[in-house]
Simulated scan of single mutants.
Amino acid sequence: MSMLRIFNVAGSAVSAQSQRLNTVASNLANADTVAGPDGQSYKARQVVFQTVQMGDVGAAGVKVSQVTEDQTAGRRVHDPKHPQADGEGYVTYSNVNAVEEMVNMISASRSYQNNIEVMNTAKTLLLKTLQMGS
């Protein structure tokens, strides 16, 4: 694999992890939201990655193939005085699990950082190679 191809592979991973981080941020921002006027609460979203061939044999990158919604029911809390309470006095919150999202955020952040480090190392190696030639 060519040294320049490393930038394409690592760049695809950085882009995918960036989208994953944005999705996690959206989930965390909506963790405590209640059902809207339509009765539907915010559904946690997850990115699905897909391997993508980068041209060379053995060189594969990654892309986000889709963003899915978790269809599990939201958390229901009995609070009859809440303005969004249903007929039984329950308020439906989003199905976002803040702890899982924080773990997801740490994982995505580390992957993002690792791929940036791969690109920086490749850049340094390329510069050293150019310096040897002069």
Rank of each mutant, 00 (worst) to 15 (best):
S65E: 01
Q53S: 14
L28M: 07
Q71F: 11
V62N: 01
Q53V: 09
D32S: 09
E69R: 07
G36A: 04
S94W: 03
Y93W: 14
N30Q: 03
D56F: 15
V34K: 08
A29I: 04
A25P: 07
S65M: 00
V103H: 13
V47C: 03
V99T: 06
V62P: 05
Q71A: 00
N97T: 08
G61Y: 12
S107E: 14
T92A: 12
E100K: 13
M54N: 14
V62R: 04
T68K: 03
I106E: 11
R75C: 12
R75I: 14
V34F: 08
A35W: 11
D32I: 04
Y90M: 02
A59V: 14
M105I: 11
A98Y: 10
G58I: 04
I106K: 13
V47A: 05
V99E: 09
H78L: 10
Y93R: 08
A31P: 15
G87W: 08
G87I: 06
V103I: 12
G61C: 06
Y93C: 05
P37W: 11
M102Y: 12
N97Y: 15
E101P: 15
Q71C: 02
G36M: 01
G55V: 11
G55C: 11
K43Q: 09
A60G: 00
V47F: 02
A44E: 12
E88D: 09
N95W: 02
M105E: 08
L28E: 02
P80A: 10
